[in-house]
């Protein structure tokens, strides 16, 4: 709730220079994470807020191989894109399964990638022990109650905060690339390498440096023959983050899985690319047995607390169900 200087950016380079040069400056786009954490929870306390919503980073273009999405495109805009509907139906499902229409009209794609965890221990400054806020202060969530919306993959004793994005689940499965503008120009970062596991420094969440600006994402369009789906499991029927979600894309030829892409949501400290499961799936027969083996492979070593003890099993079953719906069972 600290006072801050509001600056409206009208030029990308200038915005990057401004934030890069001021450790107390932060970008503001859709605001659905930022405004909440700044004004309501009091977790972020920038002295200068650089509003980037009027930068020319909004819009979607596509060619045969890639869908390029400007970072300020909103979730609703992306969901309404005909290429997304046709070539990336599971991304559309994931988009529309997230939040509410109001929030999707505000939230940008760049902001979705960079959304902060919903962990209520992180978001309450009255809780002193949070390694993500204050390195080496401990993790209240691990011993606390209500750690239901928390991670079981990539998690550990230092942090179990969840990356709650729906959209990122299909994106990470599709090998999406993030375009980033820094003071030294633009670079491309695969989404699979964009996020950092909490490890010893849960406060470091991505490979971005202060002042780096996400300008766009590039989604490689999968082959037309691939079948994809997004399955989200949650307590409430709508307007809730996932307990477990699965984004899956499969190509099955003559009963054999020739290509498998699998992302998991609701379970990871980062949007989770399920490579172990993909390895089991690729080249295997499209059977429930294969799907079970894939789920088992991905959830071999989950980190659970009492509140999340049910999640590994739920995740396995959700993976199996999602795959079964796509690939059928050729047993």
């Amino acid at each position: 709730m600290r006072a801050f200087e509001y600056v409206r950016a009208d030029d990308i380079g200038a915005a990057v220079a401004l934030v890069s040069g001021d450790p107390a400056a932060q970008y503001l786009a859709g605001g659905t994470t930022q405004v909440d954490l700044m004004l309501k929870d009091g977790i972020l306390e920038p002295e200068r807020v650089v509003d980037i919503t009027r930068l020319p980073l909004r819009g979607i273009t596509a060619d045969d191989r890639t869908l390029r999405v400007g970072a300020l495109t909103t979730m609703e805009e992306l969901a309404a894109d005909p290429t997304v509907a046709e070539r990336l139906p599971f991304a559309r499902t994931a988009l529309l399964a997230g939040a509410s229409t109001q929030l999707r009209n505000m939230a940008t794609i760049g902001g979705n990638l960079l959304q902060r965890t919903r962990c209520r221990y992180f978001r309450d400054p009255g809780v002193p022990d949070c390694n993500k806020r204050t390195p080496s202060s401990g993790c209240a969530a691990i011993t606390g109650a209500g750690a239901r919306m928390h991670a079981i993959l990539g998690a550990g004793e230092t942090c179990i905060a969840l990356h709650a994005s729906d959209l990122c689940v299909p994106l990470v499965a599709l090998d999406t690339v993030v375009r980033v503008r820094g003071t030294d120009g633009e670079r491309r970062i695969p989404l699979t390498e964009f996020y950092l596991l909490p490890g010893d420094r849960p406060d470091l969440e991505t490979v971005l440096r202060h002042g780096d600006l996400v300008t766009a994402i590039e989604i490689p369009l999968p082959p037309a023959a691939i079948r994809s789906g997004y399955l989200k499991v949650r307590d409430r029927a709508s307007y809730e983050f996932a307990l477990v979600s699965v984004a899956a894309a499969l190509t099955v030829e003559d009963g054999t899985i020739t290509e498998a892409r699998l992302g998991l949501g609701g379970v990871g400290t980062i949007p989770w690319r399920a490579r172990a499961a993909e390895q089991v799936l690729t080249g295997a027969p499209a059977t429930v047995e294969t799907y079970r083996a894939a789920a088992e492979a991905e959830l071999r070593a989950p980190f659970t607390v009492p509140g999340t003890a049910f999640k590994p099993e739920l995740a396995r079953r959700t993976i199996v169900r999602a795959l079964e719906e796509l690939g059928g069972d050729r047993t």
Partner: peptide
């Protein structure tokens, strides 16, 4: 979406006083 920043204009604070906005 232009990535061209060679003609960068300086970002403008929306009001003179830090902390207030018009």
């Amino acid at each position: 979406m232009s990535q061209d920043s060679r003609n960068a204009r300086a970002a403008q604070p929306a009001a003179g006083d830090a902390g207030t906005v018009r």
